[in-house]
Design a protein around this nucleic acid. Structure first.
Lengths: 195, 195
DNA sequence: TTTTAAATATGACAGTTATCATATTTAATT
DNA sequence: AATTAAATATGATAACTGTCATATTTAAAA
């Protein structure tokens, strides 16, 4: 009775996706509940029928794991070699397209610096992403370099976004891509990231 | 007549220092003009006698260059060897004390991710810091690794601050310290950062 | 001690924020 | 077509924001 089956579920998903896009671009404080709802094509009224608070929605936003999702696509394309997968992930991560489109990018590059100011729950979500990503990157070498590699990737995208000079910005990404691959023991094969 | 010679200058400096401490800890949006003035021991009234706007003060805050200042101290202590200086800077940067005290730390670790959302002037200030720091780090190797090294340093401190697990946090710093030194061609000598 | 201009404080503004109570809309069921 | 409970919209609140006009305080100069 009332709205069709699964309507609320779909609406909820739309809100989460809208918040993700906005907050990955403008930061958590950069988009209010009103703006998130507008981005989702709704008004502020319904928000609290879906979430207990703004911070509650933030927690859910941080469940996204772009690398996990990307790996699924790579496997479907038949790319099962771990080194090839890493190469693809790094090529995607340290690319100018990723730099220029934070709304579709990794949460670590936009939100990690403000996480220390957030509540426990959201921090736990982001910490889980860091741990899994870092361990995956370091898994091959067995030399404890995964977090160092991840740090270089996150730092490079952050600095490349911040820098006003396009040439320096590109240079930052270029250096990082080369050195990260070197670090975790990859040579020069270049499979493509799936779309 | 009125207040003593140089009073306003000193007050202005106090405001800039207060803003720096707060914004390096809570981000630019995390502390209002009121809070900045309170941190400086004043009230909001006098603010606009010192600065045209909040963003104007932000620009001035970003003039700080911890590495330049630190190098001055190192030189005074007679440490003139570039490799020794780099070792000292890296040891200070990737330390748990730096991680735990952003208010006294490098602006890149707290503010770089939000710079793309700011006006041109503040971005130029931060860009200048990135360029100089990166070039200095890469200057020795002549192999274009300076930005990669800086990216790892900034990323590592950001992720170490974000992570809820103290052991993982420490591991991130440890790995990065080792790999950054490796990257720019430093062995294991450890001079100390001056206070 | 009085005067005075410079420096800071008080009070107020319009706009935004997270949140919620209440009203309205929706379409499956009757 | 009428009913109805679920889903969304409207309107409002108190707190906070950047900014500024006006009032008050300061201590050097008279």
């Amino acid at each position: 009775m009332g709205y069709p089956e699964g309507h609320k579920e779909r609406t909820r998903t739309r809100i989460v996706d809208a918040a993700r896009r906005l907050w990955k671009t403008k930061g958590y404080g950069g988009a209010s509940v009103d703006k998130v709802m507008e981005e989702a094509g709704l008004t502020r009224g319904g928000f609290y029928a879906h979430f207990k608070s703004k911070e509650d929605l933030f927690e859910e936003v941080l469940l996204e794991n772009k690398v996990r999702d990307g790996l699924e696509l790579l496997k479907e394309k038949g790319i099962t070699d771990t080194k090839a997968q890493m190469n693809a992930v790094i090529d995607w991560y340290l690319d100018e397209n990723h730099r220029d489109h934070p709304e579709e990018g990794c949460v670590l590059t936009t939100l990690s610096q403000e996480m220390s100011r957030h509540r426990v729950k959201p921090r736990q979500r982001l910490s889980a992403l860091v741990t899994r990503f870092g361990q995956w990157l370091g898994g091959e070498t067995k030399q404890d370099k995964g977090y160092a590699a991840l740090a270089m990737m996150v730092g490079a995208v952050s600095l490349a976004r911040a820098h006003e000079n396009p040439e320096v910005s590109a240079e930052i990404l270029k250096q990082a891509k080369k050195e990260v691959k070197q670090l975790i023991g990859l040579s020069g094969n270049n499979p493509t990231w799936p779309d």
